[in-house]
């Protein structure tokens, strides 16, 4: 997509559009007619009980679900106006545009530097100084630079859990994605590392479109602009985060955020 097209798309106010999405794992339907829009350069949180479809929808955005056999999608997913399920879509290109950070940090078994430089090298960047710039910028954006700048050639697995997760964020940023998907990025971390990740997410606001799946309601409340609540494969309600957590429109949302059953 050209800069101009992207600019027009941003003016129109959507980074991702899901239109009437049904998703199946074999014969099990996981999403039922989900339609929503993700605003560009803002943070959107997906919340809902286990099995509600929030991670499934997230993985539809960069077709990560397809690594599983027997999955099927109906409906449209548009990323900045492009139908990502159109035939001929190159998955590598898509996943560069739509990066992902997982629940468990998964640094490659190589040095800190090589982890970050991996994506750019795959894209053919060989120039040392260019790579160095990308590594530094990505680590700075992920708020990790000051902690690792003196040991870039150390093995990444020597970092703490929280640092490893920020390394994975930096590795995603090095690919200059348009959208970053985060699936429970802080659920395995201690409160301090969690705060660091949340701070990082907030700092990336205005630079990237971020969609975060979280079970931690306070986390969704703290760091997102918009919140979407899913229940049993359906989108129940989506709106400004402050409204969703203070005065949701739907009874189901209200019960979920206040920890009620029935």
């Amino acid at each position: 997509m050209s800069r101009m097209e992207q600019a027009i798309d941003e003016l129109e106010g959507t980074a991702v559009i899901a239109r009437n999405v049904n998703f199946y794992y074999g014969i099990v339907q996981a999403l039922f007619g989900v339609s929503l829009e993700i605003k560009p350069k803002q943070i959107t949180a997906f919340i809902g009980p286990s099995g509600c479809g929030k991670s499934t929808l997230l993985r539809c955005f960069n077709r990560m679900n397809e690594v599983l056999l027997g999955t099927r999608l109906e409906g449209d997913i548009l990323v900045h106006g492009t139908d990502v399920y159109r035939e001929g879509t190159r998955l590598e290109t898509l996943r560069k545009r739509v990066g992902m950070v997982f629940q468990k940090s998964n640094p490659f078994p190589m040095t800190i530097y090589d982890n970050i430089a991996f994506g750019p090298r795959m894209r053919g960047i060989k120039d040392k100084s260019t790579l160095g710039e990308v590594v530094e910028r990505s680590l700075k954006q992920a708020d990790l630079w000051h902690e690792v700048k003196d040991r870039l050639n150390n093995h990444a697995q020597g970092l703490s859990g929280g640092q490893q997760q920020r390394l994975c964020i930096a590795r995603t940023l090095a690919n200059e994605p348009e959208i970053i998907l985060m699936d429970e990025p802080a659920s395995a971390l201690d409160p301090i590392s969690t705060s660091k990740i949340e701070e990082t997410i907030q700092e990336l606001r205005n630079l990237y479109t971020i969609v975060i799946v979280t079970h931690n309601l306070q986390q969704a409340a703290r760091c997102s602009d918009h919140t979407a609540f899913f229940y049993m494969g359906r989108l129940v309600e989506m709106g400004a985060t402050s409204r969703i957590f203070q005065n949701p429109a739907q009874k189901r949302t209200e019960d979920y955020i206040s920890g009620k059953f029935g």
């Binding site: 309601l217 306070q218 409340a221 957590f245 203070q246 005065n247 949701p248 949302t253 209200e254 955020i257 206040s258 920890g259």
Partner: peptide
């Protein structure tokens, strides 16, 4: 308890 929604109100 970090109440939310109606509980917070």
């Amino acid at each position: 308890r970090q109440p939310m929604g109606p509980d917070l109100r």
